[in-house]
Amino acid sequence: MTRDDFRQQFPSFAAIRDVDLDTLLGALETSEAQKGSDVISAGRKNSNLYLIRDGRLQVSLDSGGQCTVLGEFGPGQWLGEMGMIEPETAGVARVSAVEDCVLLKLSHADFMALRRSDVSLTSVLLQVFCESLAERLRCTMQLVYEDESETDTRGDATMGWFLEVARQVMGIAARTGT
């Protein structure tokens, strides 16, 4: 993948300098996910960032034998940054390929190696992730606290509200504009 291809497909990382981008492209591992396969399993630790080059990934929750689809990520988007930054805890959602996908993967180990060798690169990456994660947190907290005073009136709408909160936490609402 060329620098121009990368910048065109992932404009959020446009601030990365040419020399640092070459380093990043060298560190990213291209992986393929076949339609129907799991990229991230629910309840298992994920320590990889996935940039989606081609295809679509679906995020779903499994509860009580029922699978609820929260949303999808497509080309130019990414997920897994929390696991790459803080790999100690497992996520609750399952991420699976709804079609054959080409992914660019950066592991926690490789990210920490980049932190030692190329801080100007990881500084740009971290700034993008910090701003994105902070906005997700802010929107989620706003959603939770705005409805706290309406607990008694939510009734049957509660499950829909829970799923809306889940989408906000996972950044699906923001990224898909819903």
């Binding site: 947190l137 499950m159 889940a166």
Partner: peptide
Amino acid sequence: QYIVAQQLSRDLRRLDIGVMDSI
């Protein structure tokens, strides 16, 4: 930036688990 990113990840993960427990 890394300290902040770690804290944000932990906070969102806590909410992740909280909403799943609520579901």
